[in-house]
Amino acid sequence: MAETATKDMNVQVVEDKVTSPWKEALRTFLRSKSAVAGTVIVLFFILVALFAPIIAPEGINEQKLGDPSTHLVPPSSEFWFGTDEFGRDIFSRVVWGAQISLTVGFGAVVLSAVLGSFLGIIAGYYGRWVDTIISRFFDILLAFPSILLAIAIVSILGSSLQNALIAIAIVNVPNFGRLIRSKVLSVKEEEYITAAKAIGMKDSRILLRHILPNSFAPVIVQGTLAIATAIIEAAALSFLGLGAEPPQPEWGKMLADARIYLMNAPWTMIFPGLAIMLTVLGFNLMGDGLRDALDPKMKN
């Protein structure tokens, strides 16, 4: 007993000595109640999305058309969230909708982070005319209101969920690009980069092994927050009929379909709306917590 105790103590001591910045960040993060709450919400929705087939085995399009016992029935023990005008269980659709919204959110953000980081690093590291061209390109993209640009892109590509994802990704590219670029501008002046150059390291290796890892923290923060916006944008596009196609249970589309029942069957609207609100809230709280933890400027 005593032995194990000392051992544990030793480990503790060793850990304290080499406090890695990541561990420090984790501690700050866990100290914030709202960040933890956000993470719990996000994890909850991820689990719901992963286990949708088990939670809602009925699927998304089990129509019981024209049957009064399932036509726009209010929430009950049988249908937790009520049913829609097709006689479909709204609970099942909201659960499966989590898959769609999270996929679009993550997908769009990963895509735009990759593209944005790539352009940002090149612009920041090489500077001069490369920087000018890429930065002006970002400016052009940023000059449009994001949802308007997304609508324009979807109109060109044709409306589908996949194209909505691509559109949202493109819209978000300049945010990541600028972020990385500014970070690279300062990192590339560090001594270890000069050292790497001095020993004749290739540009690609410097970029990937030294600059990228050291510029990446803000991308994680931005990424988490961007997922929230991406989910809202996807819902907005689907609401406008430019994203998900029937019978996909995309939350924004469910809202649009429920509009005419606002007065007499509000549950068709409330639950998908709540789902959007909660996921977005979760990602935002988590993102805020991450920023507090990872951004050195916030430390006092």
Partner: peptide, 10 residues
Amino acid sequence: IDKQAIVDAF
């Protein structure tokens, strides 16, 4: 196509 159901529902 189940027309009766469509008429009933919509």
